[in-house]
């Protein structure tokens, strides 16, 4: 449904561009959830904004690559151009739903507005569809909640409302950028469940962006791990967690407290993530990598094909079959 090839997003002047996303490629199939995981500043959010055509202006721009939505090239199209050209069926939800909702308008009006734009319905029909959407996102007492204002709802319910608005355009692809990061875990798991449920029922594809390896393991079908603007490893979820081959993937999993309960010390990844543009030669992860050799600092690492759909951007990958 969504295919991204060699996407490069840069900031700075054309003469001296700084790549914040470089050479990112991935595909999402119908009804599939691709998890894009990485720490802050790794370029995962920029990737999603570029895919949506929502890069902030002025600022970062797409310097290379191609974005295909359901077979149509939308790389350079603005969101409204995509809608006019009929490629508009992609929607996005964000981390903080409160900032995306108008505080002085009723929930029902805000959903109905989205319905009007996409389905051309108006009045009672739009309102009925809004109620359907609320039921789809499993808000109890949907009819009653339509007349509520955003501040009367909890964080979890607001995120459900955002999902309802996103569903108004009957999207083929939904981009979810850290939609559960601001929520409590008992609420988070319900939103994750809802997304999985919608994906199953509506055959929708989801690009799920998060920093949390746990959330990825629970929800994603396939995973792309991002670091320093690059995808350093891709695999289906079982393979990635069973046999991580990139040292960063492995490090990220190892340092999760939930995997080390009761240990005296947590394994760590030394140092901190690089600022964009500071590492120009070799592997972006080399300065923090335990297995880095001299060649890692000078030569761009190869993209190794390690199995079906399993790739790692590493010259010296971890052994296969070593349990993590």
């Amino acid at each position: 449904m969504l295919s991204v090839r060699d996407l490069t997003v840069s900031i700075g002047s054309d003469a001296a561009p700084v790549d914040i996303v470089s050479g990112v490629s991935f595909d999402i199939g119908k009804g599939e959830i691709l998890g894009l995981v990485g720490e802050s500043g790794c370029g995962k959010s920029m990737t999603s904004l570029a895919v949506m055509g929502l890069l902030p202006q002025p600022g970062p721009r797409i310097r290379g690559g191609r974005i295909e939505l359901v077979g149509a090239d939308v790389t350079t199209l603005q969101p409204w151009q995509r809608v006019e050209a009929g490629h508009g069926r992609i929607a996005m939800i964000f981390q903080e739903p409160m900032t995306s909702l108008n505080p002085v308008r009723r929930i029902g009006d805000q959903i109905a507005e989205a319905v009007r734009v996409h389905d051309g319905l108006s009045g009672a029909a739009a309102w009925t569809r809004a109620r359907e959407l609320l039921e789809q996102v499993r808000i109890p007492d949907a009819a009653l909640q339509l007349s509520a204002y955003p501040h009367q709802l909890s964080g979890g319910q607001r995120q459900r409302i955002m999902i309802a608005i996103a569903l108004a355009c009957r999207p083929q692809v939904l981009i979810a950028d850290e939609p559960t990061t601001a929520l409590d875990v008992t609420i988070q798991i319900q939103i994750l469940g809802l997304l999985r449920d919608l994906c199953n029922r509506l055959d929708m594809s989801i690009l799920f962006i998060t920093h949390d390896m746990g959330v990825i393991a629970q929800l994603a079908d396939r995973v792309a791990v991002m670091y320093g603007g690059r995808i350093v490893e891709t695999a289906d979820v079982a393979t990635l967690f069973g046999e991580p081959r990139h040292h960063y993937t492995r490090g990220l999993m190892d340092c999760m407290p939930v995997r080390n309960l009761g240990a005296r010390r947590l394994p760590t990844i030394a140092g901190q993530a690089p600022r964009p543009g500071t590492i120009r030669t070799g592997c972006v992860f080399a300065p923090r990598c335990v297995a880095a050799q001299d060649v890692c600092r000078t030569a761009t690492p190869p993209r190794l094909a390690l199995g079906e759909g399993h790739e790692a951007l590493c010259a010296f990958p971890l052994d296969a079959g070593r349990p993590s």
Binding site: R138, V185, T186, Q188, I189, Q190, L192, G193, L194, R196, D197, N200, D212, M213, G214, V215, I216, A217, Q218, L219, V237, A238, L240, F241, G242, M253, M256, V258, R259
Partner: peptide, 18 residues
């Protein structure tokens, strides 16, 4: 139960309402 564990064998299959 709600803590997302990095273990793909316990994946979310569908809606959970608690």
């Amino acid at each position: 139960a709600a803590v997302p564990r990095p273990d793909p064998s316990q994946r979310i299959a569908g809606a959970i309402e608690t």
